[in-house]
Amino acid sequence: MPTPSRYWREIPQRYRMEAGKCKACGFVAFPPRVVCPACGAREFVPAKLADGGKILTYTIIRVPPRPFEDQAPYAVGIAELDDGVKLTAQVVDCDFADLKVGLRVRLEFRKLSEEGEAGIIYYGYKFVPE
């Protein structure tokens, strides 16, 4: 079992969508980075991702990895948020038949998985249709 530190340090991203915006070129890094992949600069200012966007691509996972066994089938998608950042997350509260490229989604706080019955609960964001 991993120590909770690994989950804990991502909380600003998982709970609040905190990103880093490159001071030099404006590239928005999510999660935040040390070096801007676009221009190589190293100074960032905090930024918050947009909370809505549209689906670029998607799939329905029918053969899950642990610890997602009980969740399958579930939809996952990549959405382009309204600020241009591309983000991967599950798409929930959506009938599979309604999944399509271009679907408007917003981010909602959900439970992602848990470390068994007694371990910690992993929270984060998922897409739901707008």
């Binding site: 998982r14 691509t57 899950p64 990895p65 990549i78 997350a89 490229v101 984060g124």
Partner: peptide, 24 residues
Amino acid sequence: QEYEGYHGLTFPGLYAMMAVAHMH
């Protein structure tokens, strides 16, 4: 692992998303 695996993605799932994008 932190931004794909955390969300339950698998390799078939990732390639499926590439397929959907390519088909679209």
